[in-house]
Design a protein around this nucleic acid. Sequence first.
DNA 1: TGTACATCAGTGAACGCGCGTTCACTGATGTAC
DNA 2: TGTACATCAGTGAACGCGCGTTCACTGATGTAC
Lengths: 206, 206
Amino acid sequence: MRYSREHKQETHDRIVKKASVRLREKGAHGIGVADLMKEAGLTHGGFYAHFDSREALVIEAFAHAMDRSMEHWRKITGEASPEKRLALIAEAYLSTLHRDNPGHGCSIPALGAEIARESPKTRKAFAGKLDEMVEMITDFIPNVPRKAARKQAIATLATMAGTMLLARIAGSSELSDEVLKAGRDSALGGVKREPVKAAPARKKQN
Amino acid sequence: MRYSREHKQETHDRIVKKASVRLREKGAHGIGVADLMKEAGLTHGGFYAHFDSREALVIEAFAHAMDRSMEHWRKITGEASPEKRLALIAEAYLSTLHRDNPGHGCSIPALGAEIARESPKTRKAFAGKLDEMVEMITDFIPNVPRKAARKQAIATLATMAGTMLLARIAGSSELSDEVLKAGRDSALGGVKREPVKAAPARKKQN
DNA sequence: TGTACATCAGTGAACGCGCGTTCACTGATGTAC
DNA sequence: TGTACATCAGTGAACGCGCGTTCACTGATGTAC
């Protein structure tokens, strides 16, 4: 059928976009090539005109998802005062809306564990995007030396991702709401923590 | 061959034990029934004498893993003073040893996202163990009203699980070590956080 | 402008493979007498 | 104590199925002349 110049790129982008949603919803191995193509209104045979392998699509799709997350954060913090930016992100991240719509949410709690087990190529692509995200959050923390800000950015992202993971394990129960609330207060600095210093002992894992 | 009375239970436990390691290593869908049985020194045909389905084994295996984690925590905090208990757990949890040995580590960062997408039965079983774990950590927080302690327990567990997830995405790179360090300091209260209060706006997800 | 040919995104059948599950069978040991 | 039978954990072939990938083909449009 040979289409016009931009046509292939448009189709490619459509596959990536739809895949990025379904993969976050169903997991990195939760949906097949045929269904992903159907989502884009195509049949499975054409897949390899666009991607070398299923894995290549997974990489593109999650990168797209991470970019969209960062774009979203830039949007919601755009006009806010520097002091409020991180709080705005945490509020949006730790919402029931985000919990109940993994397909349009952050890839870390949705796909992180699976991607960490993929090939080095895939994992490193994810790690690169993670670093981008950390850098971005660091920029949202004002009046703190860069190194300390970056540390706080990592801790905040870890708390947000971990909270979302726990909230989704808990489903949409009372526990789940309790988890989101605890995460919000923690990310925003509301939870008292013990001023205990690092312990000397270091035994087995866990 | 008909074995002695305890034999079946021993075999059953061996399958569950080995599966709990391999599933954490490879993911909830990362290893098949035949290989799991081979791990236990058996052939795949006998599987259904022990479990109704693969899913039933997954439930037993992750419950076993969570119980082992809690048992381990009880062990490492056994003789410590109440004030040091949470720190001991965080130190052990946020170690490179734990990061590099998911098969013997916490199921939440390893299997959480996948289990949250399973059948309601599987997810609820996980949610129950999660609540047990939260209760246990709550008990490790002294001198704080129960409700506040529980909130802190949830936030600490979320931070620990999220940090481990990020650290594994980062592999064993410099970023990964940086993540573990930030997580340790955060879980132990060492990271300064902005005293910003919850924002009013609440737009889309992410 | 018109015509012949080349291109290549997309189609749909087919492939090889591994998976979860089923099933007829085995044979060492428990049990009944 | 000895003998005949029942039991059932474990074996290994087979099943149906869905997956990622390949491939010969299509046909609308671009390009060369």
